[in-house]
Nucleic acid binder design. Structure first.
Lengths: 218, 218
DNA sequence: AATATCTATCTTGTATACAAAAAAGTTGAC
DNA sequence: GTCAACTTTTTTGTATACAAGATAGATATT
């Protein structure tokens, strides 16, 4: 399955928004973008329309496309939904997960720990995402899995900003192990509750971070 | 906020898929569509790309766009997710809902009942959707609300096919009242559980319907 | 006759051209 | 000098033109 040029461009623009090249509220000019990527306006437009659908930019007809970063309130809301979706995954997975997948989770956790030891944050993030992705898959609900991956991808840049908080890493790893234990025992309720707070706390932490920044700015 | 022509066309194509004009697996030819709607290929392409993102059609690069109706398994999965999202709405709404919104729910229920009396199915569907939409709103989480509306819209045509089953209407109305009671009492758990089964049963019923159809065909 | 390869046609993906609406700049009136 | 209306420019939305890949058909070979 080959990719279209507009798809590649959409991902690249997404990256440029994530890394701060395009700021919140900034207008994305079609002509400028077409010059930057050395293509015509057509694939640029298709890319922007895709990003508009995913919510990363806002499209005001006949006025243009503007970067639309979620504010603190919306972020908390998104983390709240993510927590619920993942909690559902865990609950379903508790009765459906295979032994092979349990081993996969344990192996991923081990690699996560190793990454912490090596202070390899990049690898930590990757393995952590992998852990959650396995959970999505083991929910046995492909649609749920896809929705989770979509939201995970959307929240990815904001996870990174707040995971650096002291002590969080160790606690996060402990929670991962608690989740695996609950799944092994087939305790859907425990797995569900643990992962709900595990994810929700990220939103909370972000909230605190934001309030502090806001207070400091005043 | 004005609408683009491609947006209008997207909705019209969506309608044509829902009403069966375009069948599952059918290829949607850009040129044919542009003749049908008397526009050029450009707005057609934009509309199709939007539908591809929403999952209603599948887009295989350089090969075309094909209608992609969810099969029974995917439908059950989608209803399962819908049930979980709505359960979350109910749980959150139990602590956040306003007295005015409670009255709104009661009034909507009353109109629902009236529609049943008049055998006005069209109006029943509308009021029923309204009831659920109020719940989404009263979750106090705008992002969750939007996600629910999105999925509700996607499942809408399939709800219609199976709500006609005997006895389901009366039971459905009873469940609505149970939900309101739970919200009045602030019992998030009860509201959540009631609506989860209320929505999930639609997926189950559909499942049974499909198996029967499948058995009959063999 | 069946299959494989080459060729012609069709369809999508991209570039360019044009139309219409919004933004910006200018001129004029008070 | 300020504000408003008109004009110019810019930018989006749509149409058309062109390029390249995919499908289908024809021809040749075994």
């Amino acid at each position: 399955m080959e990719q279209k040029r507009s798809d590649i461009i959409a991902n690249q623009i997404e990256e440029l928004i994530f890394d701060g090249t395009f700021r919140d509220g900034e207008r994305l000019d079609e002509v400028q973008l077409s010059e930057r990527f050395a293509v015509s306006r057509t694939p640029i437009r298709e890319a922007l329309l895709r990003l508009a659908q995913s919510g990363l930019v806002a499209h005001y007809p006949r006025r243009g496309v503007f970067v639309r970063q979620p504010g603190p309130i919306e972020l908390i809301e998104m983390f709240e939904v993510m927590a619920e979706l993942e909690a559902t995954c865990a609950r379903l997975a508790a009765t459906r997960i295979s032994d092979a997948a349990i081993d996969e989770l344990k192996a991923t956790n081990a690699r996560c720990n190793a990454a912490v030891q090596d202070s390899d944050t990049e690898r930590y993030y990757r393995e952590n995402e992998q852990f959650h992705a396995i959970l999505y898959r083991e929910s046995g609900n492909s649609f749920l899995e896809q929705e989770c991956l979509r939201l995970q991808r959307r929240l990815q840049p904001f996870r990174r900003t707040q995971l650096r908080l002291r002590g969080r890493l160790k606690q996060s790893m402990q929670e991962h192990e608690q989740i695996v234990s609950a799944l092994v025992e087939g305790d859907g309720q425990a797995a569900s509750d643990t992962i709900r707070s595990h994810v929700a706390v990220q939103g909370e932490k972000f909230h605190h971070l934001m309030s502090r920044l806001k207070t400091a700015a005043e």
